[in-house]
Design a binder for these strands. Sequence first.
DNA 1: CCAATGCATATCCATATGGGTATACAATTG
DNA 2: CAATTGTATACCCATATGGATATGCATTGG
Lengths: 110, 110
Amino acid sequence: MARAATTADAFNAVAEPRRREILDALTQGERPVNELVTLLGLAQPHVSRHLRVLREVGAVVVREEGRQRLYRLNPQALKPIHDWVASYQHLWEERFDLLEDVLGDLKDEH
Amino acid sequence: MARAATTADAFNAVAEPRRREILDALTQGERPVNELVTLLGLAQPHVSRHLRVLREVGAVVVREEGRQRLYRLNPQALKPIHDWVASYQHLWEERFDLLEDVLGDLKDEH
DNA sequence: CCAATGCATATCCATATGGGTATACAATTG
DNA sequence: CAATTGTATACCCATATGGATATGCATTGG
């Protein structure tokens, strides 16, 4: 049951490096599958499958144009990830605050 | 080759819902394994394994105290994820800008 | 209408992984 | 020292999944 039914989840979709590459490529704008194949250096069927996963979690949207399928980024799908990680942000930033406090104390001692 | 050698990667560690639960629980502070077992309602071996994955990507740190192992959150490990998603943030916020523009235009027409 | 092009899907193989259960171990307690 | 407690590991099983390759389809060009 490797990663139970988590597939349809943005976190999982983005856990795959290739899929992040695809999303990164799409920040430049809409692209046909073929272009992504060239960019990623992957076999076309693989790219199509990754795109399918991304589609299923809503991270990309397709548009048909002739025999091409133009994929476009749908950034909103990444918001849940952002929200989750953002709730941890203050935790690693507190470190800085603590460090600054310590440095401040050291200064005061002189 | 399911998710090739990605295991030692924060994105992958966090793709598992249970592991996010563990991290969420640790935001309250250091906790022994047993407590996490109770909190998650998972078998102890599973919790230990999830903790191992989290340890391997540096998301948690262990401290031995008697026969207990106290796990503590290491939020810095999540920063790469935050950085990556953050680079998409302006993309979904632009939507709001666009919407506001449209609303503004509608207003101007009246 | 036939060949070519652009994609999606199906199938096969190998492997990573999650849950279950048993077990090994170290530290603590009596 | 024996029993108990807290964890980590080892195994087994089922399944999700990534890459490879073949193939099915629809659109387009000659």
